[in-house]
């Protein structure tokens, strides 16, 4: 089965925490073959191209529901696929991560098909609840697509965090594992946005790096996971109460970004973790 795949990937795909039926499919439409292909494709990027350093992976629960929350960075969101690969390669047993995909991508032929065979469902609260109640791991970037639309000069700032993830975590009693992804802004620094290409593809942004084609450079990146955070509540708190908890997560992610940048010996921008509109 799966010729041409590294042995490591082939073994791990059979240990992954997804209950497949006779056809290698799960109830959300994930296909084992597609996953094997996907992780097989990403493994060299993870190990060699970006040389991802992972710290604190032990903070990700070995079983049961969890929400992984972090900063979004670098034009094309390589952060999502690298976080997924880190849970696949660096956890024992490996775990599969469900991302929440922007709705525009569901309209693209082929792309939407691949996303759904990998369990990357449209970013809807219904999906988040269904996945968490099935004891899956959910990856959420509370900055949303706007997070990837940061210019290089604004690297490691954070755009306003949505609060939906916190209500969902409280409602479904899910622990939050904060993480920082650093290096992504250096891998694909966005110097400008192309409005025309964004409109043509229906994407919210089309990033233009200095080398024009939006393809990330092989710079070392680091994923820094923090200890799980659990919050008391049922998700029906006032906006103000929710916002306070979101700020806690955001501050934790900012700290993790600082630790990550230090570990990579990258300069720490003065505006680290600040709102996009705030000046340093």
């Amino acid at each position: 089965m799966f010729p041409g795949l590294p042995d490591e990937v082939r073994e791990r795909i059979h240990q992954i925490d997804v209950p497949f039926n006779t056809y290698g499919l799960d109830r959300f439409g994930i296909s084992r073959d597609t996953l094997a292909w996907f992780y097989g494709f990403l493994t060299p990027f993870y190990r060699h191209y970006f040389q991802i350093q992972t710290a604190g992976i032990e903070h990700v629960p070995k079983a049961g529901r969890a929400m992984i929350i972090g900063n979004h960075s670098g034009g094309i969101p390589v952060d999502a696929s690298m976080v997924m690969t880190s849970l696949f390669l660096d956890m024992d047993p490996p775990r599969h991560t469900h991302g929440m995909v922007e709705k525009f991508a569901q309209k693209w032929p082929i792309v939407s098909q691949i996303f759904s065979r990998m369990g990357q469902l449209a970013g809807l609260p219904e999906h988040a609840v269904q996945l968490l109640e099935s004891e899956r791991i959910l990856l959420v970037f509370p900055e949303g697509a706007r997070g990837t639309g940061k210019l290089y000069q604004d690297r490691y700032r954070l755009v306003r965090f949505g609060t939906g993830f916190m209500r969902l975590a409280l409602k479904t009693r899910t622990p939050i594992v904060p993480f920082a992804f650093v290096g992504g802004e250096e891998a694909l620094p966005t110097i400008a946005h192309s409005r025309i290409l964004a409109q043509l593809t229906g994407a919210p942004y089309w990033p233009i790096p200095p080398w024009v084609i939006p393809w990330p450079m092989p710079v070392p990146c680091r994923i820094h996971y923090g200890e799980p955070m659990t919050f008391e509540g049922d998700g029906n708190e006032s906006d103000e109460d929710i916002e306070a908890r979101v700020v806690e997560v955001r501050e934790r992610i900012t700290e993790l970004m600082r630790e990550g940048l230090e570990a990579l010996e990258l300069p720490i921008p003065e505006h680290l973790g600040m709102d996009l509109e705030e000046r340093a």
């Binding site: 709705k103 569901q106 309209k107 939407s112 469902l121 449209a122 809807l124 219904e126 999906h127 269904q130």
Partner: peptide, 9 residues
């Protein structure tokens, strides 16, 4: 629809 959830209640 592209933005409809799976498992409708």
């Amino acid at each position: 629809a592209p933005d409809a959830p799976l498992y409708h209640s």
